[in-house]
Simulated assay, not measured.
Amino acid sequence: MKRRFRLSVLFILPCLALVGCSSTPTEEGPQRSAVHWPFPSDDRPLDFVTDPIDEYLLIFSRWEGTPYRLGGASEKGIDCSAFVQILHSELSSPVALPRTTRDQVLEGEKVSYKQRQAGDLVFFKTSRSVRHVGILIDKDHFIHASTSKGVTMTRLDNPYWRKRFWQIRRIS
């Protein structure tokens, strides 16, 4: 039930803002923490969200659907490494990530696939010389700026990405 609920939130939050409706939780998507969704109506600031996964999803909801643009770093278009860099900076991470995937893959420590966890960077080799990066939001899903879908959430076991998986790095 918690799994479906998290994915629902990504689609329900924008609708709530537009039409003021509510929905029942469903069972797909990443695991949720104890934060209550939709947000309480007492106008508390978003700093009450303490689970990093929830923070990732809040930021993701603002960027979702932003088109991919090589070298881009704005709402008009963004590439994968800029999305990861911005996400880390918006989370007030003490680690400032470099701008390019080539440099980001040198940060932190490499971890095994079995040791992966939310917040780890996941890297792919999409061609002989092209690399791609995203951020795990749980063991099964990552968010990234896709060349075909823009900023999106994808399953790690998606056949396209599974075939191109390279490594996972943990930024302390």
Rank of each mutant, 00 (worst) to 15 (best):
Q167F: 00
I78A: 00
S74E: 07
S81M: 05
L18M: 13
S89H: 09
V133G: 00
R162Q: 10
L91N: 06
S93H: 15
R164F: 00
A34E: 13
A96F: 01
Q104M: 12
L136C: 12
E55H: 07
R32Y: 01
R69K: 13
R128I: 08
L46K: 07
E109K: 15
W166M: 10
R99G: 01
F11Q: 09
R3K: 13
G119W: 14
P40M: 00
P38K: 04
S81I: 12
S8E: 07
I135A: 06
K110G: 00
E64Q: 15
S74R: 13
N158D: 15
S93F: 07
Q167C: 08
K110Y: 00
S93A: 10
V95I: 15
R170L: 11
M153A: 09
A82K: 01
S8C: 05
G71V: 11
C21D: 09
I143M: 03
K163Q: 14
K110V: 13
K2Q: 15
E28W: 01
T154Y: 02
S112G: 15
L7T: 09
F124I: 08
R128E: 15
L10C: 12
R6V: 02
S23P: 04
A17H: 09
T50M: 11
G150K: 06
M1K: 08
N158Q: 12
H36G: 07
R102W: 06
S93K: 03
S89K: 13
A96H: 03
L91V: 03
S112P: 05
D140C: 00
Q104S: 09
E109Y: 06
L156A: 05
D157L: 02
L46H: 07
Y113H: 11
S127E: 11
F5R: 03
Q85S: 10
W37A: 00
